[in-house]
Structures are given as structure tokens and as C-alpha cells.
């Protein structure tokens, strides 16, 4: 089997606070293969963004990776010194943030942003970098790039700015792009365009994507596989079709039911009772059990690891009985 682009093993992110240490990401493992799009879904505060931020090494202190490993193309990157990690960012891992309106420095032109990034990662001169910048703008679908390159971010609409942000994230042809809610701040009509663009570019360049979103629709349309996060852990992971149509974890089922369906007969939209626990009050056993309609005794006492459940894997005792899954041991290493 080919070496995965990104392999994360037992990653734990902790925040020391005055009232004890909070675990924002708790012992999660996943892998992304070359050219693959892994979607990560979950509610706000489930640890999705924290996972992405930890992978690219941009956790804000006091947050820190307290355990586990992150490997990029086989090499460990979670313990790299500051300067090496910096060189790797943008060069081999790109990142796209949620809000294109605030991702660009208002005092600099689009061209400055692009040439600055290109020149940081390649040894191109100013003129070459500019030529490359215009190419990139063309590639992300900015009309009249030769003129617009000298304009400032405020001359661009939200969708156009997100295109520029994508160009910036891809300008050194990274192996992996972490897209943290790339469409959340955009109009619905623009969202589809941006997702299509991201998909097309990553396919053309063979870039893998870690797509973080709370929008199941975006995941269904874009991702190859999907990981569902709840309270800092991965509760289900599998091929996107399987997870969407045949959810194994009660939480995923709840998420799917909560998506409004056109032509559906129900008057009330199904919702999951209760709210996700605070990080300081995660219950014993399965973190989801207080909200789970199918919880039983074992759920309240023992924390489930990821267990094989058909084509996907789910951290739920409902699947404990199935063969060849139980007992993978701590860590719940995903087989990918």
C-alpha cells in the first residue's frame, strides 16, 4: 500500500487552564492518501479545527500537542523545530481559513500577498513570481488577472477573495491542503463554485485535502471519506457514501436526520436532544451516551474505541459484537 500523505496517530491536544487541563482533541487517528479528500464533520467545539491547526503546527499557546504523532509522507512533523515547521507550512501543507474577508491583509495588494508567498517557497525573482502569480489567479478563475493583481483585498468580493486565498494556499504546490470551513462565510450560490474549484485544483495537482466543515452537504459532494468528530474524538469514519447513507454511530445517524430533505413529509426537523458537553464535563464512558437514544449500561462505563462496522468504523458498543473488529486495543488506529 502506498505511503499515506498524512498519517495521524493518537493525536491529543490539550489546553492547560487554571481549572485543570482541557482535552480539545482526544487520542484521534486517521490517514489521508495521495489525492484523497478526507472530510471532518462535527458540531462547533468538537475539535475539528483544532485537529487541523495541530497538524499544521499553528496551535496558539497554551494549547499544545500532548501526545501522538503526525507524519507527513512518512516523516514525523509534530516535533519539528519552529523554523523547519515554518518552512513546511505553505510549502508542503497549505491551509485555507473560514473567512476570506479577513484572511488577507487589507494594506497589501493581492499581488504582494502572492509574490511574497511564492518567493518565500521558491527561488523565483520578483518578475517571475509575478508572472506565476498571474498564472495562479487565472487558474483560480479571477477574470483579468493582470489588472486585478495590483488591487487591494477590499476591491474583491467574498467569493473572489476566497479564490485568491485558495491560490495562496496552493502556490507552492503543497501535498496537503487543510481547508477549515472554506465555504461557511460565503453565499450559498458561491459555496458550490468554491467547492468545485477546490476539488478541481486538488485533482489536477494531486493534492490531498483535509476538509473541515459542519456542512454534511459539502462533505457528501466533495469528500472521499469522512470522519465524524464528537467531543474531541472520532466517533465514526468511513467512505462518504457509507457514512451518509448507512450511518453506524447513533450520533452520525442523528446528524444525518437533522439535514432537511426537500419533499420530506415530517413537519419538524429531527434534532439530537441536548448539547455537546463542555470539554471540562465530558462524561465517563461514551461521551455521547447522555444524548444517545440507544445507550445501555456498557456505554456509561466504558469508552468505546473505533470498531469495525461494515465498510466503516464506529466508536460505539452497538458494534462490539461484530467479528474481527473488537479488541484493536487503545488508540483505535484506523486502517484506512
Amino acid at each position: 500500500m502506498a505511503r499515506p500523505v498524512l498519517q495521524v496517530d493518537n493525536l491529543t491536544v490539550e489546553f492547560p487552564t487554571r481549572r485543570g487541563t482541557l482535552r480539545a482533541v482526544d487520542d484521534i487517528s486517521f490517514r489521508i492518501d495521495a489525492g484523497e479528500v478526507l472530510g471532518v464533520v462535527g458540531e462547533s467545539g468538537a475539535g475539528k479545527s483544532m485537529t487541523g491547526t495541530a497538524v499544521i503546527g499553528l496551535l496558539e499557546p497554551p494549547g499544545r500537542i500532548s501526545g501522538g504523532r503526525v507524519q507527513l509522507e512518512g516523516a514525523r512533523i509534530d516535533h519539528l523545530p519552529h523554523d523547519q515547521m515554518r518552512r513546511l507550512r505553505g510549502q508542503r501543507i497549505g491551509m485555507i481559513f473560514q473567512d476570506p474577508l479577513t484572511s488577507l491583509n487589507p494594506l497589501y495588494t493581492i499581488g504582494f500577498h502572492l509574490t511574497e508567498t511564492i518567493r518565500t517557497h521558491t527561488d523565483r525573482g520578483e518578475a517571475e513570481a509575478r508572472a506565476r502569480a498571474i498564472e495562479l489567479l487565472t487558474e483560480v478563475g479571477i477574470p483579468a488577472p493582470a489588472q486585478r493583481i495590483d488591487q487591494y483585498p477590499h476591491h474583491f468580493s467574498g467569493g473572489m477573495r476566497q479564490r485568491v486565498v485558495i491560490a495562496l494556499a496552493l502556490c507552492a504546490e503543497p501535498r496537503l491542503v487543510i481547508a477549515d470551513e472554506p465555504t461557511t462565510a460565503l453565499d450559498v450560490s458561491i459555496q458550490a463554485q468554491i467547492i468545485q474549484l477546490l476539488k478541481r485544483l486538488c485533482r489536477e495537482h494531486g493534492t490531498s485535502v483535509l476538509l473541515i466543515t459542519h456542512d454534511m452537504g459539502v462533505i457528501a459532494e466533495t469528500a472521499d471519506r469522512v470522519a465524524v468528530m464528537y467531543a474531541g474524538r472520532i466517533v465514526e469514519v468511513g467512505p462518504v457514501r457509507e457514512v451518509v447513507q448507512n450511518a453506524k454511530h447513533p450520533y452520525t445517524e442523528g446528524l444525518m436526520d437533522a439535514i432537511p430533505k426537500i419533499g420530506g413529509r415530517t413537519e419538524d426537523l429531527a434534532q439530537i436532544r441536548g448539547t455537546m458537553p463542555r470539554l471540562s464535563q465530558i462524561p465517563a464512558g461514551c461521551a455521547f451516551h447522555p444524548r444517545c437514544p440507544r445507550a445501555f449500561d456498557r456505554c456509561r462505563q466504558e469508552r468505546p474505541e473505533l470498531l469495525d462496522a461494515g465498510a466503516s468504523r464506529a466508536a460505539c458498543w452497538l458494534h462490539a459484537g461484530e467479528p474481527a473488529g473488537a479488541g484493536t486495543g487503545r488508540g483505535g488506529g484506523e486502517r484506512g
Binding site: R89, G90, G94, M95, S103, T117, T120, A169
Partner: peptide
């Protein structure tokens, strides 16, 4: 704390460029 500084870091710019340029 702004997003564009975070994004500048994510683009791999040197600390110097982030702090003094941006």
C-alpha cells in the same frame, strides 16, 4: 490575533515578514 496574521503564518512566511511586514 487577526486572521490575516494566522493565514500569513499558515503560508509559511518567516516570523520577520509576519511581524514586521504584516
Amino acid at each position: 490575533r487577526t486572521d490575516y496574521i494566522k493565514f500569513a503564518r499558515a503560508r509559511g512566511l518567516s516570523d520577520r515578514a509576519v511581524h514586521f511586514g504584516h
